[in-house]
Computed example of a mutant assay.
Amino acid sequence: MTSLSRRRVVGSLAALAFGPAAAHVMAQPPTSFPTRPVTLWVPWPAGGATDLTMRVLAELASRQLGQKVLIENRAGAGGTLVMPVLQQAAPDGYTIAQLPQPVFRAPHVQKLLWDPIRDTTPILQLTGVTFGIVVTAGSPFKSLDDLFAFAKAHPGELTVATNGAGTTPHVVMDELFDKRGLSYTHVPYKGTAEQMIAVSAGQVMVGVNSNGFAPFVDGGKLRLLVTFGEHRTRRWPQVPTLKELGHGIVAMSPYGLAAPRGTPSAVIKVLHDAFKAALLDPAHIAELAKYDQEPAYLGSEDYGRVMKDTFAAERRVVERLGLAKAAQ
């Protein structure tokens, strides 16, 4: 009997041994991923800067995957509401989410049922954001020191809007004011667009958020007082950073994509490759540039290490600022 004949006999016997179902499975080629649309959860409202850039990213990734990437928005709780989605989703690659910085901070602030390291599988890091403090164009506040002076003269009267309790803007403002023994009234919003409209209309005195303020600043509706990056931005080179003003704070909040815990590595690779190509596509880079963002790509393994480092660093920040609540 030839080797080919022996292989045929062995294959037939194996199929018979495991029954008709096994024979059918053995006769089928491996199923490729994806075979249906992928849902990408974004933890911010539709229409904000991050949402808009993620929609461009999703459209470009759809072309790579051969299946639609559908955006679902789940705003609130400072950007952390995607974590329960990932925790409960099947680890099959069809449910993924953007992971913003607050998901690494929130578990240190309050007791939660989810863990951003335990319950996720990293796909890739995408980019970071430009944070800044803005006031309406007609505001008497021309600098950060003006805010401190007002807060000192009028304790608790300064109203400051952020995109939620425990977010990076909120934590940075708390640190700046606590160091000086000053207070302000925190006004949380679910999204950047809603918040910037409120600041522009004078409903709140100060806004702190990511680069979704860019169109309002460029359009002359808002004045940018300071940014949080390592260096001044190319877009607003006249605006100083917190670091150069001597406050010792740099905050860029890099973010990426993750899948549920246990998602197969082969599926993660397909998602990684598609979203990396989308990230670096000129159309996406141009969309990021509208908000003074640039790609900050990291692969799955490197992003996983950064996630763990960020989780540990956020614990130290929470402990230093005394933000932790009772565990019960």
Rank of each mutant, 00 (worst) to 15 (best):
I123K: 02
V208D: 04
K221L: 07
A278T: 01
W41H: 10
G262F: 11
R6N: 03
L86K: 01
A326H: 07
P215N: 15
Q328Y: 10
V317N: 09
A151W: 04
G76Q: 11
M307K: 14
V82A: 12
Q64Y: 00
G11F: 04
S62F: 06
D309G: 08
D309W: 08
A75S: 11
A283W: 02
H154W: 01
D146A: 11
L81F: 06
V38Y: 10
R261I: 00
R6V: 04
A289H: 03
A198G: 13
A75N: 09
W41M: 04
A21S: 10
G79T: 13
R223A: 09
P215H: 15
Y303C: 03
S3P: 14
L65V: 13
G138N: 15
Y189E: 05
L242P: 01
S32A: 14
A326N: 06
Y303E: 06
G220P: 10
P34M: 13
L147S: 06
Y189Q: 10
A259G: 02
A97I: 02
T35L: 03
L222P: 09
L176V: 02
P264Y: 01
P37R: 00
V10S: 06
V226E: 05
N209I: 01
I71D: 05
A296F: 02
E194S: 15
V129R: 03
T241K: 05
Y297V: 07
A77N: 10
A258R: 06
P91W: 02
A89C: 08
F150G: 10
W114F: 09
L65Q: 13
R234S: 13
A22I: 06
T120F: 07
K142T: 05
A89Q: 07
L70Q: 15
L257I: 03
Y303S: 05
L4F: 07
S3R: 00
R118C: 03
A58L: 02
V172W: 02
I197V: 14
R305V: 01
M196L: 14
R8G: 14
P30D: 08
V103E: 13
L222K: 12
W44G: 12
